[in-house]
Design a protein around this nucleic acid. Structure first.
Lengths: 183, 183
DNA sequence: TCTTGCTATGCAACGAGTTGCATAGCAAGA
DNA sequence: TCTTGCTATGCAACTCGTTGCATAGCAAGA
């Protein structure tokens, strides 16, 4: 029941179409709330029916019309009351941790495969960290002069950076452990 | 499609009933894969129908029978092939991050409420970290003499500890930022 | 020219996860 | 004695999320 709220925040930061939202979820918002375009379109429909957002039809000659959404008063009210409600505890789903414990029940060959997978996984997290750091330099060059919204965005990004650094350190630990088992 | 595999790992570490599994998911496994008892019972039924696990009925005089599950050969084979398959990228869902960015669209009163929420949230993560550290001292006192399974369990626990420490540091950062906005 | 890929939206079917409720006996404490 | 809480399992209804597919025109490069 929270994709609505992520969409409201994104639309308040910048109105846009379902397609544009889907791309933002791949980049910015999707760092901490993933969603596919099908999900976004479906939820936008419901939000429009509930009067949380309003759409402006934009014809584009030939192509399907683009529906540019922005937040209505009742959507903003819904967001406010959600913002003030208690934070729910996270539902953790960490597949890799399950696989690592499962590695006790595989043989050395299987563990070698897992080591290769962890290395690949590590590369993607390295790339994510680099992307975050590049974005930080680009979007938040001067910390002193930021408005409220930008300061909050920067704090969330710092959280992403801290997370990626922690993951990379832990993956090194995991690789050491896995390599130590069959040697 | 992955709760099955978390259950297989847990049953290989120690056979048990649906109820016992549910309690393990609250404590140990649930640190990185949450599941309710309803989900676990339903999936166990399916796994039994597929021949992945076998149940031993244990009458207990009066109470409903306890069904003690253990992993069958085909379940173990299914786990092995899953262990060797590529690790899926995590689907991140971090409600608090959405609320922090949303705080730009609330007033000082709303942000004060959020600060109180973040403080409460921080207390729960402090408690989690303490629980992990206590468990580490209890279950892994002597690192040198551990078998394969225990070493892997310890590595996963170290990941949990690193995660909680990172979260606590970040929450301090978040609190500083939020408090700085309306002062 | 042909193919690939991008913008832009959407349906249908399925699988995963949540919530509320129900049963039922035993044990411990107020 | 009465209530609360634990062990132990489960159904039904619902919402959330994923996967596969479909349309349709334009732009860029092989």
């Amino acid at each position: 029941m929270a994709l609505e709220h992520a969409i409201l925040v994104s639309l308040l930061e910048q109105p846009g179409s379902g397609y544009e939202l889907a791309r933002r979820f791949e980049r910015s918002i999707g760092r901490f709330w993933t969603a596919t375009h099908q999900q976004i379109y479906r939820v936008l429909k419901r939000m429009e029916a509930d009067g949380w957002v309003v759409a402006e039809e934009i014809g584009q000659g030939g192509r399907p019309d683009k529906r540019c959404y922005s937040v209505a008063a009742s959507g903003r009210a819904a967001l406010t009351s959600w913002l003030r409600a208690p934070v729910q505890p996270e539902a953790v789903r960490h597949e890799l941790a399950v696989k690592i414990r499962g590695a006790a029940f595989d043989d050395a060959g299987g563990r070698a495969t897992l080591i290769a997978e962890v290395e690949r996984y590590r590369v993607t997290h390295e790339a994510t960290l680099r992307r975050y750091l590049t974005g930080e330099r680009r979007d938040f060059p001067d910390t002193a002069t930021l408005d409220v919204g930008r300061r909050l965005q920067h704090t969330v990004l710092r959280g992403g950076i801290a997370y990626e650094r922690m993951v990379l350190d832990w993956l090194d630990d995991v690789l050491d452990t896995l390599r130590g088992l069959d040697r």
